[in-house]
Structures are given as structure tokens and as C-alpha cells.
Write a protein that binds this DNA or RNA. Structure first.
Length: 416
RNA sequence: GUGGCUGUAGCUCAACGGUAGAGCUCCGGUUUGUGGUACCGGCUGUUGCGGGUUCGAAUCCCGUCAGCCACCCCA
């Protein structure tokens, strides 16, 4: 038996990596004053079908009928859930709301490297503030998030665009309102298709490919000026590149849209987001009319990026090493001292140390091997010297005799 | 959803028509209280699954499932 396609077993080493990611996600979000929430993994399929919510994600919906004959779907993203929750109780929360979520999402599509059917996503949303300051806050969070993994200006960049610029463009060139989605889809894909194909698709709109390319090439997005100025002051302007070619696939974005992409390798977008000022009103039939901006990052793509970036990988390895399952390993050199060893282990554990020791009689050499294997930084040898023990720093093999009562302070001292 | 490649011990792979092997991992050992090396020994496979061709198939053919890559799109 294997897991279903696109689903993964997480063995301890995989889970340790996931914990590393999630730890950084939470830590960064909280530095920006965001609070964590979660909602159901399974939602009514209607939530994703409602006006303006789904977009291209609809084709990848993991949906089925439950035993109560309800049309349900596993969430492909959390934004609709967030919108539903906020619409229901937004009066309970002071604005703006800074909420984040770490949750499993599902998309039924063919799997590939960095893309699975079940994945963990980090989602950050700022609700109730429609200003460029809010956009800047969220984008700065994303930049700091990636930086917290040891990724720098040479490793990633944020492509930044604004759908309002496209709406102006469409108004100027007479694109009908109900065809804006179709038009934006063409723009979104244009850089990957041959020119003739793009020209053919644009023909019904009466817009030449040259006109479009010219518009994108100018890269002038006046609406972005305050946002860029904000990021400039924070010292983060270097991470951001205005680029009208970014449109994003989700239908509900209304203003600023952005995506983080890797500067090396051929990974796809590692994070994406934007402003969705009408989604809440649409999902609540107008009862909660709040502007919002947010983004999502997936675990699979980020993990791949860390693997490919040496400095980030080194940082991760160091963090995982520091988080080893055992910090102090008790070597029982004389089996008759086992009771004292157990008492000491208990004492160390109560003080917060991660402690290991052999469950049965083992040779001393083997016990040191186990200490090494579990990633312990110290071994404490208990034997004939009791009540004195030997503490050994595994890294440099430096050994010292310490009275048992002095062990705890000695370890605490060596920790820093 | 479309196309290409792949599928052999827990992992990485070899054998490419004559009835399966190596390295790593794991376990044990190299006699008595000190660890990542070295040496010795041991375990594990209906060769993804189902059919076909053949005297004989891991090896050829078909189907199916799964993985990888590209497209598509996105985290």
C-alpha cells in the first residue's frame, strides 16, 4: 500500500523540516502582529463557486458528495474560508485585522516537483484597510519571511503589478466588462506563448500585440508609487520589481497583485497574493464590505528553493541540528547505577533538557554511538565515581568530572 | 487533462532473453568503562501489478497503476 498520488508520508526527518518551516512562518507573522486562526478543511463546494471567488482553481477542486448529500470540497486555499469567517463575525474584531493561517490545502492536479495534491500553505491576510500602507505591510512581511530562511536579494524577487492599471487599459481600449477575466488570462499567459498565438487570441478584442507589449514594457504603474516609497523607507525596495506582466490566476483580485519567484533555477512562483477588496462583500452578500490584502506560500516549493540555495540550506541544517531529538545522553557505565541514572534523567527532563539513555544493558562504546546518533551535544557518564559524574562535550571530546548536584548548573552554563 | 521517460532488496542502482547482485542503511561482532573511521558476519526481493510472445522473461509486446519531466497552471 502506498499513499495516494500527490500525497506524502512524513517520516520524522520530513516532519522536522516541516516544523522548521512552520516555526519561521509563525515567528515572522507574529513579528508583524499577526494572529493565527484556522477553519475547516472541508467546506461547502458552493463557497468556491460563488461569484468572483474561484477562478482557475475551480478545475482543481477536490470535491465529492458526502453521506448527507451535500456537495463538499476540500479547501484549495484558505482565503474563501477566511472571507466567510470574517464576514460572519467581523464586528467582533478591531480593524485592521491581521490574521494568518498555517493549514493543509488540496488541489486535484497532476503532481510534480514542488507541487502536490496535499500541501501545507502559509496564508497572511490584512483585512479592513484599503491603503497602500496595508499592501506594503503585507509585502514587507513576505520579504522578511523569505529572508528569515537565509534567502537574500540575489535569491528571490517580488514581481509587483496592479490590476487597476489593467482595468484602465481595458477601459481605454473598449474591452467589455464581462470579458475582463478572459482578457487578463491572455495577458497572464502571454509571455509563455508564441507571438502569433497571442495575436490570434487578442484579435477579437481589437488590440494589437504591439500595443500590449508597449504597455507592459513601460512598466509605469503610478498607483504603486506610495507602496514603493513605503518599501523604500523600510530598506526593502531592492526586493521588488514592478512588472505589469503579472496578473495572477485567481479571479477575485482587484488591485495590487504580486508574486515571489526564485532568481535561480526554474522553480515556479514560490508565493503569490494581492488585494481583494470585493470578495468579502460578495461572499456575505454585502453585509461585510471590507477591503483586504494577503498572500500564500506553499511548503513544497519553498522546501525545494531552500535545497537549491546553499546559504539557506546551511541555515536550515544548523537549525535542525540544534533541534536534535536528544541534547544530553546519559551513559550508564555501571549497570548497578541505573537507578541513579534514571533519577538524574528525570531531574534533567524536569529542568527542560531533552534526555536519552539506554533502556537495557549496552556497552559504553555503543552508548556513545547512540548519543552521537541522536544528536546529543553532551554525554553524562554514570559509573563507579558516583556521586561524581563525567560530563563530555561530544563535539571536542572535552571531558570533566562534576558532582551530581553541580551537573544542572554546569549544563545550563554550557548552554550559552 | 495532453505528451515523453522510468518502475529490480528499506535507500541508490547493476544484471538487458537463460531462472537476481553490489554499495549504503539496519542488526550483531572485533573479550573487560568512552563516540562519527576500519575489519568480520547477518537480515530482507512472488524484479510495481495483470496478461501475452517464447523451450525459457527482470530483460520483448500490450494493458494498468505509480513516479519523474515538459505542457497546463499554481503554492
Amino acid at each position: 500500500m502506498q499513499p495516494l498520488p500527490g500525497f506524502r508520508d512524513l517520516f520524522p526527518a520530513d516532519f522536522a523540516r516541516r516544523n522548521y518551516l512552520v516555526g519561521r512562518w509563525r515567528e515572522t507573522a507574529r513579528r508583524y502582529g499577526f494572529v493565527e486562526f484556522d477553519g475547516p478543511t472541508l467546506e461547502s463546494a458552493e463557497l468556491y463557486r460563488k461569484k468572483n471567488s474561484g477562478g482557475e482553481i475551480l478545475g482543481q477542486l477536490y470535491e465529492f458528495t458526502d453521506k448527507g448529500d451535500r456537495a463538499v470540497a476540500l479547501r484549495p486555499e484558505v482565503t474563501p474560508t477566511l472571507a466567510r469567517m470574517v464576514a460572519a463575525r467581523h464586528r467582533d474584531f478591531p480593524k485592521p485585522m491581521r490574521w494568518f493561517n498555517v493549514g493543509t490545502c488540496f488541489r486535484y492536479e497532476r503532481q510534480q516537483r514542488g507541487r502536490l495534491r496535499e500541501f501545507l500553505q502559509f496564508n497572511c491576510d490584512l483585512v479592513g484597510d484599503g491603503s497602500p500602507a496595508a499592501d506594503a505591510e503585507v509585502i514587507a512581511l513576505l520579504i522578511d519571511l523569505l529572508r528569515s530562511f537565509g534567502l537574500g536579494e540575489g535569491d528571490f524577487a517580488i514581481r509587483l503589478s496592479d490590476r487597476s492599471a489593467w482595468h484602465d487599459f481595458m477601459a481605454r481600449h473598449g474591452v467589455e466588462k464581462d470579458r475582463t477575466a478572459e482578457f487578463l488570462t491572455i495577458v497572464d499567459r502571454m509571455e509563455k506563448m508564441p507571438a502569433e498565438k497571442a495575436a490570434e487570441l487578442l484579435h477579437p478584442f481589437g488590440i494589437g500585440i504591439g500595443t500590449l507589449r508597449e504597455f507592459i514594457a513601460k512598466a509605469e504603474i503610478p498607483a504603486l508609487a506610495p507602496l514603493l516609497a513605503d518599501l523604500e523607507v523600510r530598506g526593502l525596495r531592492g526586493y521588488v520589481r514592478p512588472d505589469l506582466g503579472v496578473v495572477r490566476g485567481l479571479a477575485y483580485y482587484t488591485g495590487v497583485v504580486f508574486e515571489a519567484f526564485a532568481l535561480h533555477g526554474n522553480l515556479r512562483a514560490i508565493a503569490g497574493g494581492g488585494r481583494y477588496d470585493r470578495l468579502l462583500a460578495d461572499l456575505s452578500d454585502g453585509s461585510a464590505d471590507l477591503p483586504a490584502v494577503g498572500f500564500g506560500v506553499g511548503d513544497a516549493v519553498l522546501l525545494e528553493l531552500l535545497n537549491e540555495t546553499p546559504t539557506a540550506k546551511a541555515m536550515e541544517d544548523a537549525a535542525l541540528k540544534a533541534d536534535a531529538p536528544v541534547q544530553v545522553y546519559i551513559v550508564i557505565a555501571a549497570e548497578e547505577r541505573r537507578p541513579e541514572a534514571l533519577a538524574l534523567a528525570q531531574q534533567l527532563r524536569e529542568a527542560g533538557w531533552r534526555v536519552g539513555f539506554p533502556l537495557g544493558v549496552e556497552k559504553v562504546g555503543k552508548q556513545f554511538g547512540a548519543a552521537e546518533g541522536a544528536g546529543a551535544s553532551h554525554a553524562v557518564v554514570i559509573g563507579s565515581e558516583w556521586p561524581v559524574v563525567k560530563v563530555k562535550r561530544l563535539a571536542d571530546r572535552h571531558e570533566k568530572e562534576v558532582a551530581k548536584d553541580a551537573l544542572l548548573p554546569w549544563l545550563a552554563d554550557s548552554r550559552c
